[in-house]
Amino acid sequence: MASQRYNTFARISWMMTSVISLLVVWWGAALLVQSRYLPTPQDVFSVLAVEFSNGELLFHVSMTLMRVAASFLVAMVIGSAIGIVMGKRAWVDRLFDGWLMFFLNLPALVTIVLCFIWFGLTEVATVLAVAINKIPNVAVTLREGTKALDPAYEQLARAYRFGRWKTLRHVVLPQLAPYFAAAARSGLALVWKIVLVVELLGRSNGVGFQIHLYFQLFDVAAILAYAISFIVVVQLIETFILQPWQQTAARWRT
């Protein structure tokens, strides 16, 4: 117990040290270069404060977050369904293996541009473009998880007549939980980066749009302000939603 507490403490102090050292290096470099294209952390934080108080930051970050949430959800649901079926049925796996290869290697930019051409500059096209980029990764992860399902538990479910719903809920999904978690964590990181690109190309709000705007103005401080606020939000989701969920799901392990 004592060592565990020490570990948590050590982990947090190292994290702080790491972040502070990054800030110090940045600050030093900015002071050294003395250019408006490399603002100091102080400049960035004052832009952040202004954008926060006038409501701009909150509006654009929440627009982006909604797109992230929608595409993430769509990608997880469709990707899991495809992955589970591919894991269960050998012929489906063989038939769609080539499809997966194709979509895994399709550059995100191509999907985005094609979606905008085919479906117009709409919110649906945005969500679809992002989801299509993520679906193959989710499918591959869940296919692996489904192939690793323990047949002994399936026999148990059949011998005691659990039925479809009970088998899914108590036998299959708990075994897939680590794979869902892996897909979700890598998914979040991928999805929010792609969402910014989509916003840059075809939306009139969101963090990506703002970054595009400030790029045209060569306003590096504003670009960094938006980037940092989004990194913080994503890290908060990771720390306070995904990690605790993963720990609860794993509490039966000794």
């Binding site: 538990y153 148990l156 009970k166 108590h170 036998v171 708990p174 939980a177």
Partner: peptide, 19 residues
């Protein structure tokens, strides 16, 4: 079964309730 085949992510009571 040859091995106990209890669902490790369910408690003893939940394992029995499931039947």
């Amino acid at each position: 079964f040859q091995s106990p085949t209890l669902l490790p992510w369910r408690t003893v009571r939940q394992n029995i309730e499931l039947v």
